[in-house]
Design a protein around this nucleic acid. Structure first.
Length: 887
RNA sequence: GCCGGGAUGGCGAAAUUGGCAGACGCAGCGGACUUAAAAUCCGCAGGGGCCAAAAGCCCUGUGGGGGUUCGAUUCCCCCUCCCGGCACCA
């Protein structure tokens, strides 16, 4: 069917673009705003179907989630990249017939709102909600397909009341408790600082003021109860990047070892020790080296140090010095680099294995918050102990010799310190001759039998301190009654509303403490006066469970409905979670913990929140992370205004594989804009003319009977120009589909689509001559639009309409790959002589090895390359290459 | 120090299982269209050499050095540099 009249028509007016000449520009702005408005009118467009929709029994669910943003004011390119990945996946899954949940929300409590309140004098709530409105508009302009009916805003009472509810449950279960702990304290602000507010050991607002450590009563969540499960279940997370699993494993820091009690030596030290202070328990992973222990080392803050130094003012001063040093080093992050030193207390302890008397020291390299805060020092077999012993001329006693595989070889003394486990005990009494690991087992058992120690496991992971002396957060629902002590707020009284109009510019303690209406309450037990907790929760609480709320976001009676959550989470959690690797530890460990707690509470049945995790790379410019101070920030708004949302999104996917850092180049996005224009112009020129009476009569009456005809046409007798397009089309379908299933290298998906478009352009002359059947060409264009739809939705929707399609693009099925149609009929086989390319032969794709070799040997270039030599070996890789080895 | 990741043209990158290194795009160059420019379309293009030029041919090339292999960007060993995380963790 001749689809286009090629005879010259009257030239269009000069002021109108001429599509025949190819200068019709794609006006991304007007097309995108048109569709954006249309999508907003149809709010249900991207809504997931209900969890139990009887009309869709066989439909599989898919939960794709991007990490929710902090509403800082405007989106940055990292957001655009993150959401472009998730949105492409969501659209792809829709087109593959899944019931897709793709929600968005706001992690909207936190410090920047308070900073803004102080510097710009805007109430945090107003500032935050304003930012949300702005960023939501940006997201809509970018065309991300979120189900806004499930929007979650963590700073609103309808959300944070459930934080409070969970806190009560945690408290009920003994999982939330109060204890004294050290916090960062700025003496100038007279308030506590979050860790994030400590910059190089100084206050963020007073850069010359060192932050102090103060002891305060704080609320903690007992995450360590799950330490072992959090570690073990990492094995289940095969869909997570190995890197993240390793980071979590290190963070949890499980370490098997032995506790050993060293009794103080009373014979010489009899001054005033009670039973409580009569032993020092050390933790060691190498109890096999204990016969080489030549001192006991205490952390300067170890409780027993006070007793040991009580009688000696000079010693006390030295210890105080050590404490100060250690604290400062810790604050500035230099711990690990400070020079080791310590002081001898003048006291001794008894090694229970050999009853030997060893000196007790206090040293700055011993940390109070790991193990027991006390170690046995074995200089011969530990690097730090060795360094320390050399400095203070302590005895270095070798108790492990390296084992050799060769029994004949005489075992030489190893270079010190010798720290590996591949050894055999010497100078260790009855344990001589044992291997290290066996010795550890036997010696731990012995300690347990004799009652002076036992095998144990310690973790680096600490309980989660969630108290923040801040205003803009979830109030902790607790009361302090003089008579009844700590009393939880009854469930029926939730939410404890965060008051507004609180002056947070004043310094000194929690801002809520200065609001009498908030602080003064009634004890629910005795009815007497009570004081409210004035600290708020760490904002990581909000993000620990928000993705469950999306499944049932408007529920006013519970955080979410268990059955609904069960539908979306299944046994294995969110199908795909996408975000920055900077959350690899904190957010992702807290939410794993929260899931396990909710499971034990009976709310859900899955053990893990996230089945597959993807961490995208950073967006950088000129080799550095985008930042205001470097002046290399690229604003999404500006990109959208200049090139359009599709171009910005497509470029963020095209410039690099999504897991790698992306180096933003403005010239690169221009290329993408050109490509989109190329696609647009092709369809503009080649879409079948708008359906007229004539064409309706000419084509088959019903679309359902039309499709098979087209397929028959394709499979049998396409002319060569069309066949070339068909082949490229199916190769492209495969490349794009495979990547969605597998490695997500969308950059190469997009280049594949570009190649397809290049092939179409190359065929335009043939098309103009009618050498490509119109129904086939229409199909190709449909498929091209579908392939583009996950990446450039605006253009795809526009073209879909231009192709005469009325149905929602996302309901159209994803193009089907047909291996037969993708096959090449002829192949160009490179011919190597001794591994060097010397010629090429063109052969039918199904040629036998023999035939390829024959043709190669007949090739002129090959002949001249092997002239006078003997072919000793022929290596033929079918369809790939031929290598002739000659001598 | 330990654990990850990386290094390929002028630039962003590709090569999915050991098989033509540089797909796709940017910048560049040449041509067509235009009075001109923009836009658009077509083409060239790793580096070096032989040659007046072109065609053609040769050499060389994936951070550096070695190895395995008919064949290595890809696998193995050693080294350098860059990025990220953790770090007196006993």
């Amino acid at each position: 069917m001749p689809q286009k009249d090629n005879t010259k028509t009257a030239a269009p007016p000069a002021d109108r673009p001429n599509p025949e000449r190819g200068d019709e520009r794609y006006d991304a702005q007007s097309v995108e705003t048109k569709w954006s408005q249309r999508w907003q009118q149809d709010a249900a467009l991207y809504a997931a179907e209900p969890a139990s929709d009887p009309s869709q029994p066989g439909k599989k669910k898919y939960y794709v989630l991007e990490m929710l943003p902090y509403p800082s004011g405007v989106l940055h390119m990292g957001h655009v990249r993150n959401y472009s990945i998730g949105d492409a996946l969501a659209r792809y899954m829709w087109m593959n017939g899944y019931n897709v949940l793709h929600p968005m929300g706001w992690d909207s409590f936190g410090l920047p709102a308070e900073n803004a309140a102080i510097s710009a004098n805007v109430p945090p709530r107003q500032w935050t909600l304003g930012n949300i409105a702005n960023m939501k508009a940006q997201m809509k302009r970018l065309g991300f397909a979120y189900d806004w009916s499930r929007e979650v805003t963590t700073c609103l009472p309808e959300y944070y009341r459930w934080n409070q509810w969970f806190f009560l449950k945690l408290h009920e279960q003994g999982m939330a408790y109060r204890k004294k702990s050290k916090v960062n304290w700025c003496p100038k602000c007279a308030t506590v600082l979050a860790n994030e507010q400590v910059v190089n050991g100084c206050c963020w607002r007073h850069e010359d003021t060192l932050v102090e450590q103060r002891e305060l009563e704080q609320w903690f969540l007992r995450i360590t109860k799950y330490a072992d499960e959090l570690l073990r279940d990492l094995e289940k997370l095969g869909g997570w990047p190995e890197k993240v699993r390793i980071m979590q494993r290190n963070w949890i820091g499980r370490s098997e070892g032995t506790l050993v009690d060293f009794k103080l030596d009373y014979a010489e030290n009899h001054k005033g020790f009670g039973p409580a202070g009569s032993t020092i328990t050390v933790f060691t992973t190498r109890v096999d080296t204990i016969f080489g222990a030549t001192s006991v080392q205490l952390a300067p803050e170890h409780p027993i140090v006070g007793d040991l130094t009580a009688a000696n003012a000079d010693l006390k001063a030295k210890v105080a010095q050590l404490i100060a040093e250690q604290r400062q080093a810790k604050e500035t992050g230099d711990i690990g680099e400070i020079e080791k030193h310590g002081v001898f207390t003048g006291r001794y302890a008894i090694n229970p294995y050999n009853s030997e008397k060893v000196p007790i020291w206090v040293a700055n390299y011993i940390l109070m918050d790991y193990g027991t805060g006390a170690i046995m020092s074995v200089p011969a077999h530990d690097e730090r102990d060795y360094e320390f012993a050399q400095k203070y001329k302590l005895e270095i006693r070798l108790v492990i010799l390296p084992t050799s595989n060769d029994p004949e070889e005489t075992v030489a003394e190893p270079p010190l310190p010798f720290t590996t486990h591949d050894g055999m005990l010497i100078n260790s009494g009855r344990y001589n001759g044992l291997g290290c690991d066996e010795a550890i087992r036997q010696m731990s058992t012995y300690a347990e039998q004799k009652g002076f120690g036992k095998a144990t496991v310690t973790y680096r992971l600490k309980d989660w301190g969630i108290s923040r002396q801040r205003y803009w957060g979830t109030p902790i629902p607790m009361l302090y009654c003089e008579k009844d002590g700590i009393v939880p707020v009854p469930e029926k009284d939730l939410p404890v509303i965060l008051p507004e109009n609180v002056d947070i510019t004043l310094t000194g303690g929690s801002p809520l403490g200065r609001v009498p209406e908030f602080v003064n309450a009634t004890c629910p037990r005795c009815g007497g006066p009570a004081r409210r907790e004035t600290d708020t929760m760490d904002t990581f609480v909000d993000s620990s469970w928000y993705f469950y709320r999306y499944t049932d976001a408007r529920n006013a009676r519970a955080p979410f409905d268990g059955k609904t959550a069960q539908y979306w989470f299944g046994d294995r959690g969110i199908d795909q979670y996408i975000g920055g690797v900077e959350h690899a530890i904190l957010h992702l460990i807290y939410s794993r913990f929260w899931t396990k707690f909710m499971r034990d509470l009976g709310l859900i049945t899955n053990d893990e929140p996230v089945e597959r995790l993807f961490t995208q790379g950073m967006v950088i410019k000129d080799g550095a992370k985008m930042s205001k101070s470097l002046g290399n920030v690229v604003s999404p708004d500006e990109m959208v205004a200049r090139y359009g949302a599709d171009a910005a999104r497509l470029y963020s996917l095209f410039a690099a594989p999504p897991d790698r850092d992306l180096d933003w180049q403005d010239s690169g996005i221009e290329g993408i804009q050109r490509f989109l224009g190329r696609v647009y112009r092709f369809v503009l020129r080649n879409a079948s003319p708008p359906t007229s009476i004539e064409t309706l009569l000419a084509t088959s009456p019903s679309p359902s009977s039309g499709t098979p005809q087209v397929e028959t046409l394709q499979a049998t007798s396409l002319p060569p120009a069309a066949r070339a397009i068909q082949r490229k089309l199916h190769q492209t379908i495969k490349r794009v589909s495979d990547d969605f299933q597998g490695r997500w290298h969308f950059n190469t998906c997009i280049s594949a689509i570009m190649e397809l478009v290049n092939v179409l352009y190359a065929a335009e002359e043939a098309i103009a001559q009618g050498a490509v059947p119109a129904p086939f060409l229409a199909d190709v264009q449909r498929d091209l639009v579908l392939l583009l739809a996950p990446f450039a939705p605006y253009l795809a929707h526009e073209l879909w309409g231009m192709l005469g399609e009325k149905e929602n693009l996302l309901k159209a099925p994803w193009p089907k790959y047909d291996a037969e149609l993708a096959k090449e009929e002829e192949l160009e086989i490179p011919v190597q002589i001794n591994g060097k390319l010397r010629g090429r032969v063109i052969v039918p794709a199904d040629s036998t090895e023999k035939f390829v070799i024959e043709r190669a040997l007949a090739d002129e270039k090959v002949q001249s390359a092997i002239a006078g030599k003997q072919v000793v070996k022929k290596i033929c890789v079918p369809g790939k290459l031929l290598n002739l080895v000659v001598k």
